[in-house]
């Protein structure tokens, strides 16, 4: 059994303990709530499956450029943003999927046209050249250019996917800031009856 699968099964076992079968619940909740649970992100590796290999490579490069490691703050790569976005977009409505796939394809096409390489392999300066739409002033009117639409969307999504992680919160806390303030904890509404 692959290591990832083993870890997932282990986590699943722990998670099921919190589901409290009737017999256990009858004993009172104290024993179950004392268990410290692991999060998926710290326990298992993602298995990206939505984007093609070329698209995912381009997305990974984009993530690294949009939110790079900055001082002691982790970047998008360190927080696993590319694989998370692969999952998020795989679950998203078709219009959102289209923004990503068309944008990543446009990025690879432009890279091949101008530098004869896929986006993931172009030099640093060339990559920044291709991200030029993000250095133009923002306007509220949506662009008709698929690459611009994608980059504007990715700028927001990659940052959110990076900031909303434990790694980021811990880095903020170690700088003397408040992890809660920067990365957010909040009042979660359980499903209504």
């Amino acid at each position: 059994m692959p290591e990832v699968m083993k870890r997932r099964r282990f986590i699943k076992t722990i998670a099921s303990a919190s589901a409290l079968p009737a017999a256990l619940a009858a004993q009172g909740p104290a024993a179950a709530t004392a268990l410290e649970l692991a999060s998926f992100d710290e326990a298992a590796d993602p298995l990206p499956s939505f984007f093609t290999a070329n698209q995912f490579a381009a997305l990974t490069r984009v993530c690294g450029l949009l939110v790079p490691q900055y001082g002691e703050m982790p970047g998008a790569i360190e927080t696993g943003a590319p694989a998370f976005l692969d999952f998020l977009i795989s679950e998203s409505p078709e219009d959102d999927q289209q923004i990503y796939t068309a944008g990543l394809d446009a990025l690879n096409f432009q890279a091949a046209l101008r530098f004869d390489k896929p986006f993931a392999e172009v030099a640093e300066a060339q990559a920044h050249e291709l991200l030029a739409p993000l250095r133009r002033p923002w306007t509220p009117e949506p662009s008709s250019d698929p690459l611009t639409v994608f980059l504007q969307r990715a700028k927001d999504d990659v940052r959110t996917a990076t900031v909303n992680t434990q790694l980021w919160a811990e880095a903020v806390a170690s700088r003397g800031g408040s992890g809660r303030r920067m990365s957010g904890s909040g009042q979660y509404w359980l499903p209504l009856d």
């Binding site: 998203s92 957010g184 904890s185 909040g186 359980l190 209504l192």
Partner: peptide, 27 residues
């Protein structure tokens, strides 16, 4: 709808513990 329970129906959670990192379930 139901009677909301502001005591037990809400709990503090970290955004990174949510399945969609705060984005919410798409759609």
């Amino acid at each position: 709808g139901p009677l909301p329970d502001f005591e037990n129906g809400i709990e503090r959670r970290n955004v990174w513990d949510l399945p969609y990192r705060g984005f919410g379930k798409p759609g």
